[in-house]
């Protein structure tokens, strides 16, 4: 293992690039310089914090703490999903729908991977559990927000069509069927792209990281394949869940389209 440790000076050399980018954006009046700087600062602070948390967590392997951090990550991911929605469900649904579907699929698949595939001991070994879950959540988040956004905006635009189909005696599932299918598909496209491009167009981040830290390439590749499969399944299942529950909630028990449930 020959890891070249990065010094604060090394990182500041990289930060200079972002500063230059922000500065040029300012000159070009792109109106995005502020966002760049804030996002960059968030990256530093958030990553340093999680670094500290992980360091502590790895030192004291404890299910309770792993669970707490997992829940915290889930809640933040849920918030991001909600924030990406142009028309979201009102009230608790707006937050709960995405969060619940991510919880069901990400947590189940991560536990499955830990126990059945990787076989860590104990199964919640934070060194495996937290990065796995993090990658699951990060990707399902994208899938769920894309799918839900597609569902709600299309339903809003196509109100007349959905109602016309109800009028002609279709049940709610059929009446919104084209839209739910499109939504799930849109939610899954990024993952399918990522799988198709992996290794040719892009070297996936996790694999790159492992190789940089001295892991033998074939080992890194195997882990990357595992991760790809897991997050594809996770993204797909949670996009389906969120879309189906969401579509159902667009109708009431008399199968009336209730768009006022979107805010």
């Amino acid at each position: 293992m020959n890891i070249i440790s990065l010094s604060p000076f090394d990182l500041s050399m990289a930060a200079v690039l972002v500063v230059v980018l922000a500065f040029i954006s300012l000159i070009l009046k792109l109106g995005i310089a502020r966002s760049i700087v804030i996002a960059a600062i968030r990256t530093v602070v958030q990553l340093l914090l999680i670094g500290l948390v992980l360091k502590t967590l790895f030192a004291y392997v404890d299910l309770l703490w792993v669970a707490l951090l997992s829940i915290f990550m889930l809640l933040l991911a849920g918030r991001e999903v909600m924030a990406r929605q142009q028309r979201r469900f009102g009230g608790l649904w707006g937050y709960g729908l995405g969060t619940l579907s991510m919880f069901i699929s990400s947590f189940t698949l991560t536990v499955y991977a830990l126990i059945v595939i990787v076989g860590t001991d104990p199964w919640y070994t934070p060194q495996y559990a937290i990065p796995l879950l993090g990658m699951m959540l990060g990707n399902t988040m994208t899938g769920v927000s894309l799918a839900l956004d597609k569902l709600t905006t299309t339903a809003w635009q196509q109100r007349a069509v959905i109602e016309a189909r109800l009028i002609l005696g279709q049940d709610w599932r059929t009446a919104i069927g084209d839209i739910t299918r499109d939504s799930v598909r849109v939610g899954m496209i990024p993952m399918i792209n990522a799988m198709a491009a992996a290794g040719i167009v892009s070297l996936p981040g996790m694999m790159t990281g492992q190789i940089l830290s001295g892991t033998e390439p074939m080992e890194a590749v195997k882990y990357q394949i595992l991760i790809m499969f897991l997050i594809t399944a996770g993204t797909g299942f949670s996009a389906m869940l969120a879309t189906w529950i969401g579509a159902r909630h667009l109708f009431d028990d008399r199968q009336r389209l209730r768009l006022e449930r979107l805010s």
Partner: peptide, 17 residues
């Protein structure tokens, strides 16, 4: 679903999908 098939409602603007 049955009810809507029975009461044939024609909206002012037709929709096609």
């Amino acid at each position: 679903v049955q009810w809507r098939k029975w009461v044939g409602f024609l909206p002012a603007e037709s929709a096609w999908w």
